[in-house]
């Protein structure tokens, strides 16, 4: 067989093969294939749009979150400041109250001590006057000191 031998049979075989292949592909393969491609392109385009929308929404949510976080932070700061100032005030008030109470207790104690001291002094003076009178009676012997003299002695002791 030569390189350039004319072979009409092979030409016809080529046409028939090509024709059959074209018919099968055109009739049975292309419709589903093109439909798949179209559907897939549509789906991909929709997915890309959806993804873009989701991204946009995400950005919005992110911005909202940031704003909310900022607001919450400032509120928390404010609350903290308020609490701190309240606590300071409370502390101050309590301190003042405690100081006042302590002072009152001190004054009362002082007053009580004074009164007790007065009472004690008075009792001591009475006792001392009685003692002086009793001692004088014993020195003098039988001479009794009158109530008037006893009172006078007491006055003297008080003046000491």
């Amino acid at each position: 067989m030569d390189l350039f031998t004319l072979d009409p049979g092979l030409v016809i075989w080529t046409w028939i093969s090509f024709g059959i292949l074209f018919f099968i592909l055109w009739k049975f393969v292309f419709p589903p294939l093109m439909e798949n491609l179209k559907n897939r392109e549509k789906t991909i385009a929709k997915s890309i749009d959806d993804a873009a929308a989701i991204e946009r929404r995400l950005e919005e949510i992110e911005a909202e979150r940031g704003e909310l976080l900022k607001k919450t932070n400032s509120e928390a700061d404010e609350m903290l400041l308020q609490t701190r100032s309240d606590a300071e005030e409370l502390k101050k008030r309590l301190l003042e109250k405690a100081e006042k109470e302590a002072e009152e207790v001190l004054v009362q104690a002082r007053r009580k001590a004074e009164a007790e001291r007065e009472a004690l002094l008075r009792a001591l003076q009475d006792d001392l006057a009685d003692f002086v009178c009793d001692a004088s009676e014993k020195v003098i012997g039988s001479v009794f000191i009158t109530e008037k003299e006893r009172e006078f002695t007491r006055e003297l002791v008080k003046e000491l």
């Binding site: 059959i20 292949l21 393969v29 798949n36 559907n39 897939r40």
Partner: peptide, 20 residues
């Protein structure tokens, strides 16, 4: 060649195949 092409295309191309 006709058998190979039609065979592969008919076997592997399915209608509604979104995740090929």
């Amino acid at each position: 060649s006709v058998l190979l092409i039609t065979g592969f295309y008919s076997a592997w191309i399915k209608r509604g195949d979104l995740k090929p």
